[in-house]
């Protein structure tokens, strides 16, 4: 404490002799300029080591021939990209990824929005329902996927058992007899685990809307739909945008659901880009092809993120 109170006195006295103390104030200024960077340095080093270097390595490997034993043989004239782009499995996988992202993000946003509207109302047991809604989000994706795999299993799944005990079916149904059926179930699980995140994002937006907006709208004779489109949606848009953009990135890159339920089978018909590149790398031992698929996925996401950035920057400019 004594030193703290003494310090200003020393500064004042030193300020009285500027010529003598000029170098020290210059040093102080340099230090002040450098200090933020020093504080940032650990994060920058960490990001470089954990993010930038792996990304650059994947870009490099995607243009290399790599043996199955993992030996890098050298530049192969982008043969990995040519092979990947010529593969019908890759094209099907790309289509699946689009369907997977659009369906999971779209449907979960719709359900999440409705659920958030309901949870924003006052009713008994609201806290309990809110806790229940967040449950799927709080549970690990792999555990959820495994549970759903068991639920829909035709041989011993609980869905068949329940339906047959209720007398709704007289024999067990194979819910995943085709690749399309497998993929539809995977989309459903994706929706199921994504809904809570959207719900709580939208709910936080809804709770920030002042009741006076609704009161004013009602006084102007607005009904439910009018209030929804003219008050709720515009005001909740920032929350919805955040949840949608984050969901697009999460869902696009989601691995556990598809891999746990089908591993991309039957006949590689249920892959998304992430499971496909995992299979290429760790099952087929084709690291070069996997790196090429990874780069393509990265570019697609980078384009999506850029569009979002441009749009949000535009929105900010218009707002200001």
């Amino acid at each position: 404490m004594k030193q703290n109170t003494g310090a200003p006195v020393k500064d004042v006295s030193s300020g009285a002799v500027p010529a003598k103390n000029a170098p020290s104030s210059g040093g102080k200024q340099t230090l002040r300029k450098v200090e933020p960077y020093l504080w940032l340095l650990p994060s920058i080093v960490l990001m470089a080591v954990m993010i930038v270097i792996p990304i650059l390595t994947v870009f490099r490997l995607s243009a290399m021939e790599i043996s199955r034993a993992g030996i890098v043989k050298g530049f192969n004239n982008f043969a990995n990209y040519k092979e990947v782009l010529a593969s019908p499995i890759f094209r099907h996988t790309l289509w699946n990824t689009l369907v997977w992202t659009v369906v999971v993000v779209g449907v979960s946003t719709l359900i999440g929005f409705v659920l958030a509207m309901v949870l924003n109302q006052n009713f008994r047991g609201r806290k309990l329902v809110r806790a229940l809604v967040i449950f799927p989000w709080a549970t690990s994706l792999i555990i959820q996927a495994v549970i759903w795999k068991y639920i829909i299993s035709a041989d011993y799944g609980s869905l068949n058992v329940i339906l047959s005990k209720l007398g709704l079916i007289d024999h067990f149904i194979n819910w995943t007899s085709t690749a399309g059926a497998f993929f539809a179930w995977e989309c459903w699980v994706g929706i199921f685990v994504t809904v809570p995140f959207v719900t709580f994002c939208v709910l936080s937006g809804l709770q920030s809307i002042d009741d006076t907006f609704y009161e004013a709208a009602e006084m102007d004779g607005a009904g439910f739909w009018r209030k929804l489109f003219s008050v709720t949606l515009p005001l909740v848009r920032p929350s919805l945008t955040v949840s949608t953009v984050l969901n697009i990135i999460y869902v696009f890159n989601s691995f556990p659901i598809v891999w746990t339920i089908s591993k991309g089978d039957p006949a590689d018909k249920t892959h998304t880009l992430v499971t496909y590149l995992y299979k290429l790398s760790f099952t087929s031992g084709k690291s070069g092809l996997a790196a090429a698929v990874s780069v393509i996925g990265f570019v697609i996401l980078a384009i999506c993120a850029s569009i979002y950035m441009i749009m949000s920057l535009k929105g900010e400019e218009e707002g200001s």
Binding site: Q3, A7, L31, E35, L38, W39, L41, P42, V45, L46
Partner: peptide, 18 residues
Amino acid sequence: MMKRILAMMLAAMLVLSL
């Protein structure tokens, strides 16, 4: 001043530990 020196030392330690 002491605070700054301390901050600098901490930053240096972080970098070194990394």
